[in-house]
Design a protein around this nucleic acid. Sequence first.
DNA 1: ATGCCACTTACAATCATTGTAAGGTTTCTC
DNA 2: GAGAAACCTTACAATGATTGTAAGTGGCAT
Lengths: 224, 224
Amino acid sequence: MFRIVIVEDDDYLREELVHTFQKAGYDAAAPVSFESVEAEIAALRPDLVVLDVNLPGKSGYELCKSMRPRSSFPILILTARDTLADELTALGLGADDFLTKPCHPDRLLARSERLLQTWKCLRCVLTVGELSLDTDTYKLIYKDRMRLLTETEGKILELLMKNSPDVVGKDALCPAVWGTAEFVDENILQVNMSRLRKSLAEVGLGDAIQNIRGKGYVLEVDRL
Amino acid sequence: MFRIVIVEDDDYLREELVHTFQKAGYDAAAPVSFESVEAEIAALRPDLVVLDVNLPGKSGYELCKSMRPRSSFPILILTARDTLADELTALGLGADDFLTKPCHPDRLLARSERLLQTWKCLRCVLTVGELSLDTDTYKLIYKDRMRLLTETEGKILELLMKNSPDVVGKDALCPAVWGTAEFVDENILQVNMSRLRKSLAEVGLGDAIQNIRGKGYVLEVDRL
DNA sequence: ATGCCACTTACAATCATTGTAAGGTTTCTC
DNA sequence: GAGAAACCTTACAATGATTGTAAGTGGCAT
């Protein structure tokens, strides 16, 4: 069953939305506090997020902007603002659909269902800028080029992408790739890093992986 | 560069749309005859199809319905009909977005770009009912279960899906899987068919592959 | 009943992937 | 600028998954 997370501060409307989705057979949930919404949303592991724009604290736009790059679920923006400029802003920030209030429940449900179906195959895809990685198969796509990574290369890139644009230390990489935090040869990481870099180069990502001497590695891809 | 195919019978509007997309840097094309649109569209290998509803011959809805199951590109319906019922019909037939005329070019462009970005990773995904297959990695998803096929299994399933629900003869399967139409042992096909069936069973597709004695094999999955 | 077609299992060859080892290059420090 | 530390790269051998071969079983049709 699909889980839908609704982010809406108006109590009445929120309950109505939750109810609409539940009646349609979805697993709907909604954070009620807006202290650290982003963490709450992530914790709920949504298949779809329905997002209001006018929220206490961070606006829906800001939320969308910050969640989008690392999220692997679609975001539907539902707002009372109905200008073209608002729609363009929302889509520009990576929103997957934009509906204005008041919105007929059937329209909302139909649009949501469409997004869920489309994204079923994308739940396991990480995206950073124009780079995307399927975390099941380690198929990587950059711009228009595609390449299949081997498992180890994939695991490394996955971690780098999840943390981009932050540095990832070897102490974090090794356990994540080889399971045990047990002593892992320094070298084996370097070898695989070398292989990964070669793979990235083949799709046109020349030196996306940088080494920070003594600290670890960073993935740097131009954001859109 | 993305190729966008516009299906619209009004000459003036069609040219305007083509121009809009071209100015925005896309490769836009539009069939002018509506005799066998479907074949023409497929031949253009679109990354996105913008579809009018009122067309001579088959309606946009019919086109959408018949293209959708095998298409691996998004469909945006653009129509003068603006009722909720129209939108629900379109979405129900598998359309990926629904816009009403007149439509501001910026809105159309923003919506199109969003679809293109989302579908970049889906261009290689075949879908039959609730079964989908990534033709690069042979990752298969049925309902909520996922499994990675081996290359040979994947090639066979790919062909069966492309032809579903028609029968595929061994004379068609063997060359497609092993390249040469050269004599290929009957047995090797059976062995791999057996392996594929086992894989499908593991995701809950018990006996989706049927043998038609003396003819070949069919894939039968319940359509949505 | 017999022959054909289809299915399955076990095995061995092949190929991709992985870690090991060793030598080279860059960067920082004194 | 010499030396050490950190990082990079290449070649090779072991491992493991995938593939085709072979052989035997089961079912359908005339």
